[in-house]
Nucleic acid binder design. Structure first.
Length: 321
DNA sequence: CGGGCCCTGGAT
DNA sequence: ATCCAGGGCCCG
């Protein structure tokens, strides 16, 4: 599942292939992929046609492409991409295409590298960027730029404080130098909701999904059910620092992937999955104390934790887990 | 702030 | 045939 590190890997992978290029055509195979677009896929394609690609910027799990007019001036809007659950951005060059096609013909339809292709952008040098998405939770759209109120760079890779209006409600992420961790920790401590819900709330702190939330809570020896208001400042900070560390570590090895849905921009999977300590490890030993990792459901999502290292507020009470 | 929904395909 | 996976948005 693409969370911050995976999206950052995609951003870095795309940059050399797309920056400075011009979009000469777009193809929308599934109209549902073009979301929140005034005028729908038709307007989407019309506005993108002829646009030049400027900086690629990421905030949390949102990745946007700044666009320039033909004369190099800022177009005032950005191409926003969100990978959702299963989205991928893949780069194809004419030279590689024949290789891929040959491989697919040999191995059958399930290994078709363009399976679940929903949209494509054709660039002026022949490069094609494909958006693949099995579950259709991801999407592409154009959004006008607005200024981030704090005046800092809007996200990783941003030349200025401008960001898409449709991402303006997304908080800065824990890797953003403009994020004030102590202040964020204090704001978590004003909330009654369980800490894991708070870590997943993208309008408080962005980029964290179910996997890294569980990993960070494990690393910080914190229980997912602990209300934010019950955390000390030190403990809240420690959890946020764990979020930062676990995502930096994932970034170093190219992101997480374990169900073959996610691959990076070159089509290769990251391999952080090997070093997951809690997530997806129900019944397996905790790497710290060997107690069996336990899985419980919260708000329809799985939570994996060590019942010994991560003592919670309700270990004896009625809730399952 | 929690629950339901979107959506597909692999597992059971 | 049914369940499960979950990011983000919308609802009450």
């Amino acid at each position: 599942m693409p969370e911050l590190p995976e999206v950052e890997v995609v951003r870095r992978g795309l940059i050399p292939h797309v920056t400075g290029r011009t979009i000469v055509a777009t193809e929308v195979l599934d109209a549902r992929t073009v979301r929140r677009q005034e005028g729908g896929p038709t307007a989407f394609s019309a506005l993108l046609d002829g646009a030049r690609i400027g900086p690629l910027v990421r905030r949390g799990k949102f990745l946007w492409w700044r666009l320039l007019d033909a004369d190099g001036s800022d177009a005032g809007h950005a191409l926003v991409t969100h990978l959702g659950m299963s989205g991928q951005l893949r780069v194809r060059s004419p030279a590689l295409e024949s290789v891929s096609t040959a491989g697919a013909a040999h191995e059958g339809p399930t290994s078709d590298p363009l399976r679940h292709r929903r949209a494509s952008l054709m660039l002026d040098d022949g490069t094609v960027v494909d958006f693949l998405d099995q579950r259709l939770f991801g999407g592409l759209w154009l959004s006008p730029l607005v200024a981030a109120p704090d005046g800092h760079a809007a996200g990783e890779g941003s030349p200025d404080a401008l960001l898409p209006a449709s991402a303006a409600h997304i908080a800065r992420d824990v890797l953003d130098p403009a994020t004030d961790l102590p202040r964020l920790a204090r704001s978590l401590r004003t909330r009654r909701a369980p800490i894991k819900s708070l870590l997943l709330a993208q309008d408080l702190v962005s980029g964290i999904g179910n996997i890294y939330a569980d990993e960070a809570l494990w690393a910080a020896r914190a229980h997912h059910d602990t209300p934010g208001e019950d955390l000390s400042q030190v403990r809240a900070r420690r959890i946020l620092e764990a979020c930062r560390e676990v995502m930096l570590r994932a970034l170093e090895v190219g992101g997480t992937s374990f169900d073959a849905l996610y691959v990076n921009v070159d089509g290769r999977s990251g391999y952080f999955a090997r070093s997951l300590a809690a997530y997806g490890r129900e019944g397996l030993p905790c790497p710290r104390c060997s107690t069996s990792i336990r899985r419980v459901q919260r708000q329809g999502r799985s939570c994996f934790s060590c019942p010994r290292c991560q003592r919670g507020p309700r270990t004896h009470a009625g809730l399952p887990g």
